[in-house]
Computed example of a mutant assay.
Amino acid sequence: MPAKSKAQQMAAGAALAAKRGERKVSELKGASKSMVKSMSEKELERMASTRRKGKPQHVAS
């Protein structure tokens, strides 16, 4: 599932780093912290690798 915004892509990248042990989970905040628990490494990798060009900073709910 590709990211829909730059913020979502960045959060997925931070969560992926924590999942791989490159970053502590306790350092994460908000969406990235919940992504670590709810998504697999493969899902996070797919979301984090989404190109940012043309994506909005945030998507309104």
Rank of each mutant, 00 (worst) to 15 (best):
K24D: 15
R23V: 13
A15S: 07
K55F: 08
K42N: 14
G21H: 13
R52F: 00
V25L: 12
A12M: 05
R46I: 11
S38K: 13
Q9S: 05
M35L: 14
S26R: 10
L16D: 05
E27Q: 03
R46P: 00
A60S: 11
K33R: 15
A17Q: 15
M47Q: 00
E45H: 02
M1R: 14
Q8W: 00
A31C: 06
K53N: 06
S34V: 07
M35I: 08
K33T: 02
R51N: 03
A48L: 01
E41G: 15
S5E: 03
E43Y: 04
G30S: 05
M39T: 11
P2F: 14
G13H: 10
K29W: 03
S34H: 06
A7D: 12
A60E: 12
S26K: 05
M1G: 14
Q57C: 00
A17Y: 08
A15Y: 03
E45P: 04
S49P: 01
S61H: 12
L16A: 01
A60G: 08
S32M: 07
P2D: 11
K6G: 04
S5N: 09
R46A: 13
P2H: 12
E27P: 04
S5A: 13
S32F: 02
Q57E: 06
K29H: 08
R51E: 03
K24R: 14
P56C: 07
A11Q: 12
E45M: 04
S26H: 03
A3I: 12
G54L: 06
A14W: 03
H58Q: 09
G21E: 15
A11L: 00
K29E: 11
A11D: 15
R46H: 01
R52Y: 02
A11S: 15
